[in-house]
Design a protein around this nucleic acid. Sequence first.
DNA 1: TGGGTCATGTAACCTGTTACATGATTAG
DNA 2: CTAATCATGTAACAGGTTACATGACCCA
Lengths: 196, 196
Amino acid sequence: MLKHGILGLIGNGDKTGYEIMTVFRDSLNHFWTAQTSQIYRELQIMEQTGWVSQTHVAQTGKPDKNVFSITPAGREELLRWLRDSHLPAGVKNPFLMKVFFMGELPVEESIAFFQAFRDASVFPDDGKRVSAAADLYRQTVDHPEKAVYWKLTIEFGRMYEKMQRAWCEYCIQELEEMRRRKSGTEEGIKHESDFA
Amino acid sequence: MLKHGILGLIGNGDKTGYEIMTVFRDSLNHFWTAQTSQIYRELQIMEQTGWVSQTHVAQTGKPDKNVFSITPAGREELLRWLRDSHLPAGVKNPFLMKVFFMGELPVEESIAFFQAFRDASVFPDDGKRVSAAADLYRQTVDHPEKAVYWKLTIEFGRMYEKMQRAWCEYCIQELEEMRRRKSGTEEGIKHESDFA
DNA sequence: TGGGTCATGTAACCTGTTACATGATTAG
DNA sequence: CTAATCATGTAACAGGTTACATGACCCA
C-alpha cells in the first residue's frame, strides 16, 4: 500500500524521500501514516523493482539529495493498482477492541473513556494542516480536477469524526442509563435490607 | 493488540485456539481480523510471558485440544491495557489512499468505483452473523451488563456503514457535476470549432 | 548556543498475511 | 461420497514501528 502511495506522489512530480515524508505528515495523515525509515526502505525496493529511478543532486548550503522519478513501469503499476477493484478487507479498530471488553471496568471509568475519546476526535481545522493542504492543492493546480479527489478524502475525515462524536454520545447515554439502573437496584436492595 | 483481544476472550472463560478463531470470525470481524496461524503463535508467546496457561485435554471422536486459561498476571495486563488511555494513532484507510490519486483515471471510472464501494458497504444483518452474535451474548449472559458493550461496537459498525454510504453519494454527486462541467466545456470547444 | 529544518539512512523488532500440511468425525 | 466442523500448527514473507545515528545551516 505505501508503495502505491509513494508512486502516486512521485507521479505528480519528482520528489526526495524527505519531501514524501512531509506530504504524509501534513496531508495524508488522516488516512495513512509512514515513518521516514519505511519510506527510504520502500524507495530502495521500488528502484530495484524498476518503478522509480533515482538521481543524486549535489547541493551547497544543504545536504545532497536523492530525487526520485516515476518510470513507465511505475506509472503502469499505479494505474493497475487504481483500477484493481479488490478491496483489502482487514478492518482494524483498536478502540472498538477495547470497548468490546470494557465490561471489566466500572461503568464510571468507561463513561470517562468515551468522554475523552469524543473530545479527542475533533477534526483538525488548524492553520498548519490547512496551509499544508493548500500547498498540495497548489502543487496539482496544473490539473485542477485532481483537487476534487483531495477534497473528497478531506470530507471523509470530517464525516468520520462527526459520526464518531455522535457514536460517543450514544454510548455515554447508554452507559449513563445502565449506571442509573444499577444504582437504582442497589438502592432497592439497600432499602429492602433496611426494611428487613 | 491481538494479544489483548485474546486475553479479553479468555478472561470470559477458558478457550481453545479454535474457539478464539471462531469468535474473531463471527463476532469481532467488523473491527478486527485474525488468522488461525497468528492466534496459535500469539498463544504460545503469551504462555511464555505468563499471561495464559495451557492444559492438554484428550478427547475421543474429536481431535485432542489445548485449552487456555488466563493467569493472574494476564488479568492484570488486561486491566492495564483497558485503562491505558494512549490511543494508537495509525489510521489506515486503503480506499482513501486510492481516492486521493484517482485523478489519474477518467471520471467515469471513478464514479463506477464509488458506486461499487457504496453497494459493497451494506451492514451485514444476515442470519449467520446475528445468530453468532447472539451466541456470544448468551456466553456473557451471566454478567448481563457486559452485553451492552457488545451492542455499542455493533452500533458503531452500523453508523460507520451508513456514513460511508452517505459519503459515497456525496462523492458521486461531486464527480457527476465535474463530468457535466467537463463535457459542457468540450461541447463548447466543439461548437466553437464547428463555428470557425 | 540551542532548536528547527533539510537530508540521509540502518538494525532490530513486532505484527500480520499467505501458503502449506494433517486427519478424524458427522451430517446431508 | 462429499463437504463441513473440529483441531492443530509451521515457514516464509510482507508490512510497519521504534530506536538509533549523523551533520550542516539558519534563525532567535
